[in-house]
Amino acid sequence: MWSVLVSGLATGALFAATALVYNVMFSTSKVLSITTGHIAMLGGVFGAWFITALGLPWIVGLVGALVVGAAFGWLTDVLAIRRVLARSDEHLWLLSTLALATMVQQAVGLWWGTEPKPFPRLIPQDFGAGITDQKFWLPIVVAVAMALGLELFYRRTMYGKLFLAMSEDAFAARARGVPTDRIRAVSYVIAGALGALAGFAAGQLTFAYFALGLTLTLNGFIALAVGGLGSNVGALIGGAALGLLNAFSSYFVGGEFQQTISVGLLMLVLLLKPEGLLGSKNTRPV
């Protein structure tokens, strides 16, 4: 039973970390990017490649994965967001990020192969460690650290405050002299690095697998919508709830209906409390 709890929390932490990445990008651009899950996938795949195939020490592999993730985040902004936001058609970013996500997934599939490959052990530890295994607590620690770090970043640094200003009202921020385009690019780079970190930390749990991105995009979004869009604490709670629900339902019911149950949770929350547990209420579109 404890192992179900811990593995549920670990998957939930990965979902929560994905939801945090959504939040970072959403704060400055009001865009929910479909590439979010793919960033984490890149972190896992490139981490495994750097460490296993190139034989680098894990700390170098981590830095490499972060750089790849940050570069991809920046690329997302340049290719899929910048021009589309200038056009102010609200649906187009969905299409452009979907296109980019597919391209990345297919490219990784062609290069890395379509089979999940094992992620190397980061810290020397026995494989029989049970619930104290690093594959469980690494993602949990990283997700909590990410949420704390983001909270500090938003409250204590100038850039963080600029993010908040842009999430409140991008036009007003621009009028006050905030270079909104540059801040958005910075937020995408940060989101890319954080997503890669999450994928790297959870690599031993998920394996380095090219099709992970889409599942993570969906589940991270469910965690986000359950917790409330824009809330970091909500993302942690939503992720943990979703992970636990997944783990216990596959323990009691069987593993075949994981997606169905996750989406059921999403629908339930959206019906009862459309803004999520800790989200701010939507105003009417008029």
């Binding site: 979004f221 075949e256 209906f257 994981q258 169905t260």
Partner: peptide, 28 residues
């Protein structure tokens, strides 16, 4: 009935989830 009430991205995610659920159901 439920998903068309949702705004754009939520609707897209709900339909994407359905595609994954159907695949899961076929396998199960």
């Amino acid at each position: 009935l439920p998903s068309l009430r949702l705004p754009g991205f939520y609707f897209a995610m709900a339909t994407m989830a359905v595609a994954l659920i159907v695949g899961e159901f076929i396998m199960a």
